[in-house]
Design a protein around this nucleic acid. Structure first.
Length: 258
DNA sequence: TAGGCCATCTGGTCCT
DNA sequence: AGGACCAGATGGCCTA
């Protein structure tokens, strides 16, 4: 149904995504009516006829196109743009799926901006936790030589054991309280839930991580997500709202330049 | 009703 | 030249 059949992509924005173009819901009612009026012309275009070539094989410049051909071209461009945006939204949905917040039919979907901010902060937090872990492991292994020499009578003690009782990084604690679980469950967050907020309560502005640089991008961060509530058990202001440790501060300066 | 969010259209620019 | 990408405009839907 979609006229995308006639489009060829020299550059794919999301090569791994498979988009179902057959959905007629891509069109609004108005668009659908307009589309139907042009359906015949589109089908011709999708069969290989280019809108810029006349019957005798000569190519026309855009200024030479008839009104009908221009409309035809416009429809094709619109269709491509629509597909592009749908791909983008699919990627956004994919991102939402791996974010640590309650999923479900009764939970309002994260907005795009919230998804991006949450994702950013999530990555920063994981990076921070990883650094912390590395440090702890280093401490354990580094200091273990002395420890082991003193406890050589107990060679079965594993180096990793002590870390299980060490305090987690505040950021990790926040996340853990958010998901109501241990770090290992983060890998299975999609089944989370009950510890998560009730319906219609996506992550709070705080959890979304409006650090200074991000705040600057928003007119009114607090108002932006005023409909959100903090998660139960989340300190307010939660630690995620606090400046990240220096180990991840470098990441703050990372931009998303193309 | 205002504001937020979203989908779509559209024209411009960049890239292949 | 054609397609991807981008940003502004517009209108619809939903919620407080």
């Amino acid at each position: 149904m979609d006229s995308d059949a006639g489009s060829t992509c020299s550059r794919s924005s999301s090569p791994d995504l498979v988009v179902d173009d057959s959905a007629g819901s891509f069109f609004s009612n108005k668009m659908f009516q307009a589309y139907c009026q042009k359906n015949r012309a589109d089908s011709e275009a999708s069969q290989g006829r280019t809108e810029c070539s006349s019957g005798d094989g000569k190519t026309k410049t855009r200024s030479e196109l008839t009104k009908e051909e221009m409309q035809d071209l416009r429809l094709k461009v619109n269709s491509r743009e629509r597909k592009r945006m749908h791909d983008l939204n699919q990627a956004m949905d994919g991102l939402r799926e791996v974010m640590p917040y309650a999923h479900g039919p009764s939970v309002r979907k994260l907005s795009k901006i919230s998804t991006l901010l949450l994702a950013r902060n999530y990555i920063l937090m994981l990076s921070s936790s990883l650094e912390e872990m590395k440090k702890l492991v280093g401490d354990v292994y580094g200091g273990n030589a002395a420890v082991q020499s003193r406890t050589s009578a107990h060679p079965t003690i594993t180096p990793a054991a002590p870390t299980a009782h060490l305090p987690l990084h505040p950021l990790s604690q926040s996340l853990h309280s958010l998901v109501g679980s241990t770090p290992s469950t983060l890998q299975h967050h999609s089944s989370l839930p009950s510890s998560a907020p009730g319906p219609h309560s996506p992550p709070s502005t705080s959890f979304l991580g409006f650090h200074a640089p991000v705040q600057g991008l928003l007119k009114d961060p607090l108002h932006l997500t005023s409909s959100y509530r903090h998660f139960p058990g989340m300190p307010c202001p939660c630690s995620l709202c606090q400046p990240l440790p220096t180990t991840t501060s470098k990441l703050h300066s990372l931009s998303m330049n193309r």
